[in-house]
Amino acid sequence: MDLSPADLLARLVAFPSVCRRPNGEIVAFAKDRLEALGAAVTVLPGPEGDRANLFASFGPRDRPGYVLSGHLDVVPADQDGWTGDPFTLRRRDGRLIGRGACDMKGFVATVLSALAALPADLERPLHVALSYDEEIGCVGVRHLLARLPDLCAPPLGAIIGEPSELRPVLRHKGKVAGKITLRGRAGHSSRPDLAENAIHLAAEAVLAIRDLHARFAADGPFHHDFAPPVSTLQVGIIAGGSGVNIVPDACRLDWEARAVPGVDPAAIEAQVEAAVAGIVAGRDLASAECETLAAYPALDLPGGSDLARLVADLAGHAPEGAVSYGTEAGLFQAAGIPAIICGPGSIAEAHRPDESIAEAELAECRALLLRLFDRLT
């Protein structure tokens, strides 16, 4: 049972657990490993029917303890630039290369390795939470958190092992992404007066989103741990029309907002939707449909909290104020569980061809986990 993090990472990378796809095989592997180590394991199928979360516990579940949290899904590996099979782990110059090696199967593999050294006489429990479809908006963990009160006493905290170079991170922005479909009436371009140009409507929506972003940049609220220190909005996709001589009857745009702590992403979404409603109001041939694509709250853990002090001590590094990427940590915090980010690897390696992690950093993460285990006895 004493397998190294690299051994287990090779096994995990071999599962092509790309988001939005079935994940039964990798969940079964993790379940077998955890049960062999003595955990009480619960597999929690999601509403999709072909994906599941996993929650495992060691020690007395009726007492508050700590959660080690990671996601099992990865982004697709279809970009150019891979120098080998993305789902076969390779070693090169002290680094381990494969899709998910950094984000974030490296952390999961290290947890599954270190647990072989977990003491049997725990006074406080240790839990492992493994989720699905984090990469498309933290989908699976919401269902896991809904079940958590049935599975254990309220945890003292959760360590989210996203790549942070093993520096504890206290904060990240929240996010909301949406799709807006503007509809008009098609017609011949020689008679635009008889039609309603949906691309023109979408252009007004783009300008409204741009202006809302500019207002946040000028007026705040400001949070100077972040760069930029304000909530941001942008349009990332726009698509419509079929020919230059046809007035288009539909146009879609996808937009995203990143919200500083203290700003509810849903409130930004409401402002965007109100602006769009104003654009189509009073136009008989125009309408708009708005859809939420993804959303999660910000993380904002006080630097003086017990969890922040604990993880800083375990890691040997003072907490960092903020990161620009998002994680499941905000959802743990929203569920009443203090959460902090601390995991091996650099976010600069995530989602890129030849994604990699230093084998030495997995060893450092394993040592951190062993120090945590000592605190539970």
Rank of each mutant, 00 (worst) to 15 (best):
M1W: 13
A6P: 02
D7R: 00
L12A: 08
A14F: 10
I26A: 10
K31M: 14
L34T: 15
L44G: 09
E48M: 11
D62C: 10
G70Q: 05
P86Q: 12
T88W: 00
R91M: 06
I97N: 08
A101K: 00
F107H: 01
T110D: 11
A120L: 06
D121R: 05
D133C: 01
E135T: 08
G137H: 02
G140N: 06
L144E: 04
L145G: 12
R147Q: 15
D150H: 14
C152G: 04
C152E: 13
P163H: 02
R167S: 11
H172N: 10
K175H: 15
V176A: 07
K179P: 01
I180M: 12
R183V: 14
H188I: 13
R210P: 02
R210I: 02
G220I: 05
H224W: 09
A227N: 13
T232K: 01
L233I: 08
L233R: 03
V235Q: 11
G241E: 08
N245T: 12
P248F: 02
A250W: 04
D254W: 03
A259V: 02
D264F: 00
I268H: 01
A274D: 04
V280T: 05
E289T: 12
E289P: 10
T292C: 11
T292V: 14
Y296T: 03
A298H: 02
L299T: 06
P302C: 06
G303P: 00
S305W: 00
R309K: 13
A312C: 09
D313H: 01
L314G: 14
L314P: 09
L314N: 11
E320A: 13
G321Q: 14
S324W: 03
G326N: 05
E328D: 15
E328L: 00
G330N: 12
L331S: 10
I341K: 04
I341F: 03
C342P: 14
A348C: 04
E349H: 04
P353Y: 01
I357C: 05
L362H: 01
R366D: 13
L368Y: 08
L370Q: 10
